[in-house]
Amino acid sequence: MNQPRSVLLIEDQHDIAANIWDFLERRGYRIDHAADGEAGLAAALRGRFDVIVLDLGLPRLDGLELCRRLRESDRVTPILMLTARDTLDDKLRGFAEGADDYLVKPFAMKELEARIRAVFRRGRPLTGSLVVADLHYDPATLRATRRGVGMALTRAQSVILELLMRRSPQVIAHAELIRAVWGEEGGDQAALHTHVYELRKLVDKPFEQTLIHSVHGVGYRLEAR
């Protein structure tokens, strides 16, 4: 499957939800809709979707908490977060909780579809397990282990880890990592650093040997020293 076809839309504003539903349905997508955070979480845990479109300001359970709970439940479905908030801190919080991309309201429907396709493409892994030192990563399942300890990765973290492992011990430039995660449009170094920080907490923090290394002003490399 080259294009996403099933979308879970979690949005409490009726007019916005109806417009998104109508547009995506005409484009051939299958849409499920939840109008509050608790219903959205239940739907996301119960069903299988190619992409989740998640509003940040939801009743009963806000989007950030919903996103966090999904990632804690080992759900790796790509999440595109919608919000009226356009500050860097808000974006970084969303990425830290496991969102893969961020779209600020108001937005054009064609841009929404482009972002949905982009987060879906980034989540389609290549086959073949990767091993660097005692770190193992399976792109087919998006699961990483180190010394038998499993890690639940977000889609963005998976993209970063896979690129670093495939090219280890080469230094991967910030710009290349940003393009890999967000494409030609979207993303910046601050967002990248947030994702890498969260990835390091999983890959390196519990262990004595550090594998992910910063190269100041250039990028990151993954290697055992």
Rank of each mutant, 00 (worst) to 15 (best):
M1A: 14
R5P: 04
L8W: 10
L8V: 10
E11G: 08
D12N: 15
D12Y: 08
Q13E: 14
H14G: 06
A17Y: 01
A17G: 02
W21M: 00
W21K: 03
F23K: 02
L24V: 00
R26Q: 13
G28W: 05
G28M: 04
R30D: 14
I31K: 01
H33R: 07
A34Y: 03
A35K: 05
E38V: 13
G40N: 07
G40Y: 05
A44I: 08
L45R: 15
R48A: 15
F49W: 12
L54R: 08
D55P: 03
L58V: 11
L58K: 09
P59R: 09
L61V: 11
L64I: 11
E65R: 11
L66M: 07
L70F: 03
L70S: 01
R71H: 14
R71F: 07
S73R: 15
S73G: 14
D74E: 14
T77H: 08
I79D: 01
L80W: 04
M81W: 11
A84N: 06
R85W: 14
T87L: 05
L88F: 05
K91E: 11
G98E: 12
D100A: 00
D100V: 00
Y102K: 04
L103E: 10
V104Y: 10
V104R: 08
K105D: 10
F107S: 03
M109D: 03
K110W: 09
F120L: 00
R121K: 12
T127D: 11
S129K: 15
D138N: 13
A140D: 05
A144W: 12
R147E: 15
G148C: 13
V149M: 12
L153H: 11
R155Q: 14
A156K: 01
A156V: 04
Q157H: 06
Q157P: 11
Q157F: 08
V159Q: 05
E162D: 11
R166N: 00
R166L: 00
R167I: 02
V171N: 03
A173E: 15
A173N: 07
E176P: 02
A180N: 03
G183I: 01
G183R: 02
E184P: 00
E184C: 04
E185Y: 10
G186V: 04
G187R: 02
A191Y: 02
L192W: 02
V196N: 01
Y197Q: 11
L199G: 14
R200V: 08
K201D: 12
D204N: 10
P206N: 01
F207H: 08
Q209T: 15
L211N: 09
H216T: 09
L222D: 01
E223M: 10
R225A: 09
